[in-house]
C-alpha cells in the first residue's frame, strides 16, 4: 500500500468519526481519556492479555512474552492516541513484526490483537462514561478515528514487513537456484528446479555461457525435470540459450522434459529443430559422454589418465 492510499484511508476514518463536533473539543476530550487510560493501565493491560489468551491468538509465544509485548503496544497505543502521531507506533510495529514473523505469527492474529485492544479500551470508556451519554458520544467521536488509524497502521506495518521478508527470500532462492556443476572435464550439468520465468531464464543463460568459457566445456546437459511449466517466451529463451552455447562451441542437451512441457512446446509451435533432447538426465549424460568420447576414439586426444 502506498503512502497516498494510506493517508486517504486515514482521512476517510477521520471524516467518519468526527461528525459535526468542533475539533478542539475532541482534543480536550482525547486528553482526558488518555489520562484515564494511563490511570487504568495495569488493569486494562491485564484484561487485554487475558482476552488474547482466551482467543488463542499468538499461540507461538509464551504468556510472559505476550505480556511484555502487550505492555509495549499498550503504551505506544496510548501515546499514539494522545499525540495523533503514529510514527513511533509504526516503528514499534515493524520491529515487532520482524521478531514474530519468523515464529509463524499470522496476519489475522496481529489484526486480531489490535482489534481486541480497541475493544477492551472501548468497553472501559463505556464503563467510565456510562452516566453521561452525551459525553460518551463525543468520547467515541474522538476515540474511534484514532483507534481505526492505529489499527490500520499496525496491520499495514505487519504486512509490509512480511512482504519485505518474502522479497528477500525470493531473492535468495533466485541466487541459489541455478547452480552450474562440472561433472567431469568439459562436461557441465545445469539442473533447473522451480519456476522458470523470463528474468531467471536470462540469468541462467548468462551463467551458463560464462561457465562454458570458464570451464572450457564442450557439452552441457540442461536438466529441467524440476520445472513444472514453461511459457512461450521462456521456451524461446531456452532455444536461444542452446543456440548461443553452440556459437561458443558447446553442445547443449536438454533432458527431463515432462510430457506436459513437451506437449506445450509442440502446441506453441516453438522451433525445436536446433535442440537436442534426451528423456532423462541419465540418458543425457550417456549421450554427453559419447560426444566427448568421440575425440578419444578418433585417436586425436591422448587416452585420459584414469587417475584424473
Amino acid at each position: 500500500m502506498t503512502d497516498d492510499q494510506r493517508s486517504q484511508m486515514e482521512s476517510h476514518d477521520d471524516r467518519q468519526g468526527s461528525g459535526s463536533q468542533a475539533p478542539e473539543m475532541h482534543t480536550s476530550l482525547l486528553h482526558e481519556l488518555v489520562g484515564y487510560l494511563r490511570q487504568e493501565r495495569s488493569e486494562l493491560r491485564e484484561q487485554w492479555a487475558r482476552r488474547i489468551t482466551d482467543a488463542q491468538l499468538l499461540g507461538a509465544m509464551t504468556g510472559q512474552e505476550i505480556f511484555t509485548e502487550v505492555t509495549a503496544v499498550y503504551d505506544n497505543y496510548v501515546t499514539a492516541l494522545e499525540t495523533g502521531s503514529v510514527e513511533s507506533l509504526q516503528a514499534y510495529a515493524r520491529d515487532l513484526s520482524e521478531r514474530i514473523i519468523p515464529r509463524g505469527v499470522e496476519t489475522d492474529e496481529v489484526l486480531g490483537i489490535v482489534l481486541l485492544l480497541r475493544d477492551v479500551l472501548a468497553r472501559a470508556l463505556v464503563e467510565r462514561y456510562r452516566d453521561q451519554p452525551d459525553v460518551l458520544d463525543q468520547v467515541f467521536d474522538a476515540y474511534e478515528p484514532a483507534a481505526n488509524r492505529i489499527a490500520v497502521t499496525v496491520g499495514v506495518s505487519f504486512v509490509d514487513e512480511r512482504e519485505r521478508v518474502i522479497r528477500e527470500q525470493q531473492e535468495s532462492i533466485r541466487e541459489l537456484s541455478t547452480p552450474v556443476l562440472q561433472v567431469r572435464d568439459r562436461l557441465l550439468i545445469l539442473p533447473i528446479i522451480g519456476v522458470l520465468d523470463t528474468q531467471r531464464a536470462r540469468q541462467l543463460t548468462e551463467q551458463l555461457l560464462a561457465a562454458i568459457q570458464d570451464n572450457r566445456a564442450r557439452v552441457v546437459v540442461i536438466d529441467i525435470t524440476g520445472v513444472a511449466t514453461i511459457d512461450v517466451t521462456v521456451a524461446n529463451h531456452l532455444v536461444q540459450t542452446v543456440e548461443a552455447a553452440r556459437l561458443m562451441g558447446a553442445t547443449a542437451i536438454i533432458t527431463g522434459l515432462s510430457s506436459r512441457i513437451a506437449q506445450t512446446l509442440v502446441d506453441l509451435g516453438v522451433d525445436l529443430s536446433m535442440m537436442r533432447t534426451v528423456g532423462d538426465l541419465q540418458g543425457g549424460l550417456e549421450v554427453a559422454l559419447a560426444l566427448l568420447g568421440e575425440d578419444v576414439v578418433g585417436g586425436v586426444v591422448p587416452p585420459r589418465d584414469p587417475t584424473t
Binding site: 555461457l209 552455447a245 556459437l247
Partner: peptide, 11 residues
C-alpha cells in the same frame, strides 16, 4: 565467440 557476443547474435 564470447558469451555476450553469442547472446547478442542469437538475439
Amino acid at each position: 565467440i564470447r558469451p555476450e557476443v553469442a547472446i547478442a547474435m542469437v538475439h
